[in-house]
Design a protein around this nucleic acid. Structure first.
Lengths: 149, 149
DNA sequence: CTTGAACCTATAGCTACTAGAGACATTAGA
DNA sequence: TCTAATGTCTCTAGTAGCTATAGGTTCAAG
């Protein structure tokens, strides 16, 4: 049996994050010691590593919830897992395309900056006048990313 | 003088977002009509369009706050604006690199899926066993992106 | 047995908005 | 001019995925 701290260390997940996962039902409530502290079996470690890995790959928690349910039911066909992974791949591809457009615009901006006064600054100018953009319909897109660390 | 709705339409920003920007001090409090409704001058439209454009390019609001301050003081040297834009460019580049590693891993995952049972699913397997990854140190990285839309 | 680290709960904060409730203002049409 | 529809007002709470803090308890080493 592992304490929450050992579990977190082994899985590369912070302690409050583990408690958070329990709170939102991604991990089942842990058994407790006599003194009310959480105790985990090895099986929880693999489950948590699974979550951690999926998070690293950018899967949202709701998708992970579905993947875990599939994992718990190994006789199901794996179409659903496949679909979730494909959706994530598409989201990543979309995000990359958007960011590449942004990179292009930002590069133009900083390359043309003459390092003079703000009044003549290309950065400020471009931000103020969208028409100066190469692709006037660029857009940072739907925020399908997550935050961590 | 523009109502908040017209202003939002003209700048491509939703009405509650404009009120939010006022609340956090990114826009100065608007003058009010007799009936307490916000009224905006044309100058606010360009300011809001500036914010919108910078947001589309992924600048965080705090960076935009600094850029606006620079814009209001056109005799300053533009080093600071340049630095903000370069930082944003670097953040975008970092993010692209991370996402490309993710894309690679996700593609491998879905390509090797045999579409059988979950028990044999490559997607589930890879998520559960990090060692199957091409670059075992891949990571979705610091969440420096924002959400909108 | 004591000390310090790790643990507990509960709450608030982070980014950048978005959604909703319930009340007031404005405006276009009859 | 009246009315109905739309727009606006404030305030609060919710979104994702944690992170941080406060104030208290338990555990393990010495």
């Amino acid at each position: 049996m592992l304490s929450i701290g050992k579990l977190g260390q082994a899985a590369g997940v912070k302690v409050p994050t583990i408690r958070y996962y329990e709170q939102i039902g991604l991990l089942r409530p842990a058994t407790r010691s006599e003194g009310n502290q959480r105790l985990y079996a090895q099986s929880t470690l693999s489950r948590l590593a699974f979550i951690r890995h999926a998070r690293d790959l950018g899967f949202p928690l709701e998708a992970i919830r579905d993947l875990l349910a599939l994992q718990d039911d190994p006789n199901q066909p794996c179409l659903a897992a496949d679909a979730i992974a494909r959706a994530q791949l598409q989201a990543v591809n979309r995000r990359i395309a958007q960011l590449e457009a942004l990179r292009c615009e930002l590069e133009r901006m900083v390359q043309h900056c003459a390092h003079g006064k703000v009044a003549d600054c290309r950065v400020i100018e471009v931000l103020g006048n969208h028409d100066l953009c190469l692709h006037p319909d660029h857009d940072n897109g739907a925020g399908d990313d997550h935050h961590h660390h």
